[in-house]
């Protein structure tokens, strides 16, 4: 055993230098040429930062497209999912409450038209996206709150829908921050 202690110590030392030091530094140097120097891309409206491009944020007002429920309360310094099991009665009641609240705010919508993702919490608590259905189902409410025709809003949702990767892989989605910024610009 003794003859292995010294090599172990020395090898650990040199591995730290190369694998934790030089590797990290090299990636950091490349990051300086990356998007926003690797500190995270932000989104600005009128030269004011209103969010991070990749991270979702909370929209609860009637005149915005609402984001998905979040166990983290959209706290971007404390990501967390609900971790509720599918059979948990307390959880199912919570979903039912969200459905009821939604129906109060959207009286023209039937329960059967609510997509589940709009009343279930995301994995990160920071989901930046909505499905097209989850956006469409909110159009009538926003139309009333903003006095903009439903047709215009439907067009906006279609414009903002991002196709699957290369049109082939994965889901369709709509970035909620971009959608609501575009909504604010709509007259």
């Amino acid at each position: 055993m003794k003859q292995h202690i010294l090599p172990a110590l020395k090898l650990t030392f040199i591995s730290i230098i190369v694998l934790a030091g030089i590797y990290t530094l090299a990636i950091w140097v490349v990051a300086q040429a990356g998007p926003n120097h690797g500190i995270g891309e932000t989104v600005s409206v009128n030269n004011k930062v209103v969010g991070y491009k990749l991270e979702g944020q909370n929209f609860t007002a009637d005149n915005y497209f609402n984001s998905r429920p979040s166990a983290a309360g959209y706290n971007a310094a404390g990501s967390i999912g609900s971790n509720k099991g599918p059979s948990n009665p307390e959880y199912l009641k919570q979903v039912q409450d969200r459905v009821d609240t939604f129906l109060v705010h959207n009286p023209s919508i039937k329960k059967e038209a609510i997509p589940a993702e709009l009343v279930t919490a995301s994995g990160s608590g920071l989901d930046p996206d909505l499905s097209a259905e989850a956006a469409m189902v909110q159009v009538a409410r926003i139309s009333k709150a903003r006095n903009i025709s439903e047709d215009k809003l439907n067009t906006l949702v279609v414009q903002q829908t991002q196709k699957p990767l290369l049109g082939l892989f994965g889901t369709e989605k709509i970035n909620i921050l971009q959608l609501n910024i575009a909504l604010d610009k709509l007259k």
């Binding site: 998905r68 059967e112 993702e117 995301s122 994995g123 259905e133 989605k173």
Partner: peptide
């Protein structure tokens, strides 16, 4: 509960992955 699950089970999942 009577909701639409066109995507599927979405509790704990992200829309961009599905």
């Amino acid at each position: 509960m009577g909701l639409v699950q066109n995507l599927g089970s979405m509790e704990g999942k992200e829309v961009r992955f599905g």
